[in-house]
Design a protein around this nucleic acid. Sequence first.
DNA 1: AGGCTATATTCGTATGTACGAATATAGCCT
DNA 2: AGGCTATATTCGTACATACGAATATAGCCT
Lengths: 127, 127
Amino acid sequence: MKQSITNSPVENQAEIADKISASEIYRLQAEICRTLSDPVRLQIIDNLKDGECTVSELVDNIGLRQANVSQHLAVLRQAGLVLTRRQATTIYYRLSYPQIVEACQITRQILIDQLSQGSRLVAINTL
Amino acid sequence: MKQSITNSPVENQAEIADKISASEIYRLQAEICRTLSDPVRLQIIDNLKDGECTVSELVDNIGLRQANVSQHLAVLRQAGLVLTRRQATTIYYRLSYPQIVEACQITRQILIDQLSQGSRLVAINTL
DNA sequence: AGGCTATATTCGTATGTACGAATATAGCCT
DNA sequence: AGGCTATATTCGTACATACGAATATAGCCT
């Protein structure tokens, strides 16, 4: 088993990346992207971009069943993209990496560009 | 500073977005992210980040079968993320939106951050 | 035309995942 | 303890998709 990376204070990113094969990097990066490839989770991230939200707030804002929102929160948690804080029975969610919002903004901007060029209209009209 | 798309005479991005429901925006944005959520396609994008590549070059660089690479190129094409140019029997691929590279860099940076924090190690070791 | 090369598509299958429904856990309150 | 609220998990099913294998298309060349 590879346990070598456990607690290494001095290693820089290149060193860390070197311990993992390039294909593993792509695979893990793809996992992060897959986590972003759901409309509900994108909406959750949008809700969290300015700070914490409770699950109830997310359920209200998104308009899906609580269990379903919770499922998506579990996916985001497992991907390490959100963190939680408990206060009594209420759980607050926040983004682990606020930079994720920038990545989403880029993809949304690309979508807007596609729409304004009309290259996406066919897909929209046929769906 | 975003330059408005050259041949869309009147509509600005907000107007275009308004014509589509917010949930449709999220759905389409999720489609773009889903296109990025495959290791092979991320590698293709990486190969295209500095300019055009032929299919053969991609096949050689990636090391998968031609048919498989071509399938992934079809996914990227259908998502509108790549454009092609033909020269004789050779087809050159390029990125439609070079900004996609930035989005990928952000997700990769998040992954590196996760790895350096150790929050991803469990996932790596158990996979 | 026929053959060669470059690239694309179809088909079958195995695997992943979103959703609804139901159930479970956890903390607070009286 | 029991009940109430907030959140999480499990299960079944329907649907999507990546891959390999095989086949198809398209352009060049002699």
